[in-house]
Design a protein around this nucleic acid. Sequence first.
DNA 1: TGGCAGATTTTA
DNA 2: AAAATCTGCCAA
Length: 204
Amino acid sequence: MNISETEIISKVKTAFLSPDYFSRGAEESALNLLGRMILTDEGGKLSGGIIVETEAYGGFDDPGSHAYSGITPRNSVMLGPPGTVYVYLCYGASNMLNIVTGRKGRPEAVLLRALQPAAGIEAMTARRGGCREQLLAKGPGRLAQALGITRAMNGLPMGSCGIMISRSRFLRQPVSRTGRIGIKKGEGLPLRFIFDGNKYVSKG
DNA sequence: TGGCAGATTTTA
DNA sequence: AAAATCTGCCAA
């Protein structure tokens, strides 16, 4: 039942999501991203994994959103067209990878929080400084590091920085909707989506 | 194994 | 000063 790395890559290359897929807003996109494969391009070599944990951040009325207190130079990227990449530095050490999902004028994005590694595991392990597979992309900071995400990608369309997300789902598991974690304001809001029981999901 | 300091940028 | 985090060091 195991699909080979070559098959994964060719499958994603032939059918990946176009930016307008993300015009449906953060909450629905966050849910719909579960099970899809995300790959990044590092010198022609693709690596990545299956998305198993996401969080939705939406609008001026979401206390947990960067855009809650209005538009600033940093969060203005969230106003960009759907499919824009929003990368920012968190706590001075970790990059966070988000996909902008808002319709015009709505600052919405989905934070990618965890992957089940599936392709280019050697490359990801090297970027992570050598760690076991279970911890490769478990948590948003680790995920971004494993994929080689840098802040140079901030504000670019997904396609321009070598990010592809598959049209098909590579894994189907029961989904749980939980409160977001790791934030102070708006923590209780049930906008976090996980594959229930998947061992690559972060705890918080 | 569990708690804590530290990295560093943006914002209030 | 605090935040959408992770790592390494320390103590038992």
